[in-house]
Design a protein around this nucleic acid. Sequence first.
DNA 1: TGACATCGTGTAAATTTCACACTATGGTTT
DNA 2: AAACCATAGTGTGAAATTTACACGATGTCA
Lengths: 233, 233
Amino acid sequence: MKFTLSSKQLAAQYCYPYPHPAVTTDIAVFTILDQQLKLLLVHRGAPPFQGMWALPGGFLDIGEDLEACAKRELEEETGISGIYLEQLYTFGAPDRDPRERVISVTYYALTPSDRLQLKAASDAMDAAWFALDNMPPLAFDHQEIITLAHRRLAAKLGYSTIAFQFMPETFTLSELQTVYEIVLNKKLDKRNFRKWILALDQIEETGELRRSGNHRPARIYQLKNPARVEIIK
Amino acid sequence: MKFTLSSKQLAAQYCYPYPHPAVTTDIAVFTILDQQLKLLLVHRGAPPFQGMWALPGGFLDIGEDLEACAKRELEEETGISGIYLEQLYTFGAPDRDPRERVISVTYYALTPSDRLQLKAASDAMDAAWFALDNMPPLAFDHQEIITLAHRRLAAKLGYSTIAFQFMPETFTLSELQTVYEIVLNKKLDKRNFRKWILALDQIEETGELRRSGNHRPARIYQLKNPARVEIIK
DNA sequence: TGACATCGTGTAAATTTCACACTATGGTTT
DNA sequence: AAACCATAGTGTGAAATTTACACGATGTCA
């Protein structure tokens, strides 16, 4: 028994007995640049929301793990790879994408401000860093995702060592403190911060000094076990 | 121009130009029953994993909000409705369902041990409460979901008023303390607990007393604003 | 009316958090 | 080489929070 299909459906080779939503991942990548908390956006080269900025992300390959998808899209659209990534929340309002029903599993990621070698690639015309307090209008519900990601990041500073994911291999205590101050958006007491951060027992002196400017050089520190994010407290 | 389709594909009316995963929600519903932390499971009446126990849940209707889907499935499979629900995590390992690629957006929920009127319904042969430390073998990756949900719940006791979601309208301080002890799986000091819980300013005396057994009656308390889960600390 | 079982209450020690200011050091300028 | 500059590095006491701990109160029941 045979049935007919219109030519409009020719490209549609993947069929199911009931409707399936599309699944995407979107990634909010944070870094600290120019003493500001910045977020990586891509310029949309195709509809919908053509010409607007959006989080990097894209459709899940069938057979691909969710986190792998996030990493792949990030690599494809921005050239960034090998960074700290954590699942944030799943957004699925029925009308969040005008094309079809799309469920977006969102991630947030942190990267040190060195090794940022952005490349513009296939499905994004451009990628750039934007200060969190100066974002352009965003496609889809991406502003909502960013707001949530920022809240989560700030909260997580208080009970984990996630902030180290912003740091290069070596850093001074003042640099580290500045990162906390930027993300939390408030000044911290230098002595109390140092007592606290050293008590975590996560960093150690390298023995080197960093010279910069006409003042006393700072001791250089490094992580005891890089790439591990510990829950503290 | 017309093309042909085999009869095997007849039922498959929903077609896409690239493959889409299915999306489900699964819900871990906790309650306190018989002085134990219990979880609601449904007995699977159909393959895969027929005859095993699983979390209530099911496929997302196209056009349906994710949380609405969780609530609907919970209602359909267990008759439970109107309870506290929060998104937990999204699971999407490529092989987590043998039928097809399935992304599961998971939720966890809390309910008081009164108003539990379980009903067996359409796609679940049975539903029952299991003590968390005595679970049967579970379908899919549901054991993993439960472990995560329990961790999240215990953590959240410490910085929110989520535990009140386990309480009936009125309760005594001893009953409330017992709930904390069961979820955290450790004894708490009575005087310190009372100081702490009252300092939260979330409950108030009703003026009533609860009599039960040959001992001094306990004062009865109630929530000041029911159904609100506050972040404390 | 005495035994029973849980209710309800306070204080002191220990720990953690917070507030706060000056000396050290190397580079730069004169 | 002396003075100046700018940031690095350091300790202590007060306040707040957390922890440990024991007994009299009260209603029921025998």
